[in-house]
Amino acid sequence: MSDVVNVLIVGVGGQGVVLASNILCEVALRAGYDVKKSEVHGMSQRGGVVTSHVRFGEKVYSPLISRGQSDILLGFEAAEALRFAHEVKEGGLLLSSTQKIRPPRGPQKKKAKGLQYPENALDDAKKVCHGRVVPIEAEEIANELGNSRLTNTILLGAVSTGLDISDDIWTETIKAMVPPKTIELNLAAFARGKAVVEGAEA
């Protein structure tokens, strides 16, 4: 069903993947679409991989995206973006924070392949991703804006460039869903995230 838009959001437990996908769902709902979203709670809260499938369109049945059919992959963490890079469809978009979160591990007896943290994850992602890869220095931008928790909104700003939903709807949703005191900051963060992708295009 090509009229359904698929956005896969991935990251590590505690990064805010679920909150970001909730905001995206609300935006799609306000834009008049049918929306479905699925993620798994539970064990993932303990530092595991978190994925959230967001789908919207005129009519959406499945809450899960099928293999290699994501229009946009939004990565909150570089290695996780690499893990799911193949899910982006031809002509799609991989947007990922450059943030690295290394899993804990005991001393290693031998160097098992796949256990090493992929230091150049987003470059590696370019090799397996069928779409365009745009790294986003979300942590740095958030720190410039003075609040590390803004990475979420910066990444959503980036996602907005790949979706046909007006800025007005994004603005009104962000205003409704973030703490009132942080509205201005969040709108600034949204604009910065958007600018990164638009700048990369130019």
Partner: peptide, 17 residues
């Protein structure tokens, strides 16, 4: 349907205490 992903595995990230 397309076959499952056959890329090299990325590091494991099991849940931890």
């Amino acid at each position: 349907v397309p076959p499952p992903n056959a890329n090299e595995p990325v590091l494991a990230r099991p849940p931890v205490l």
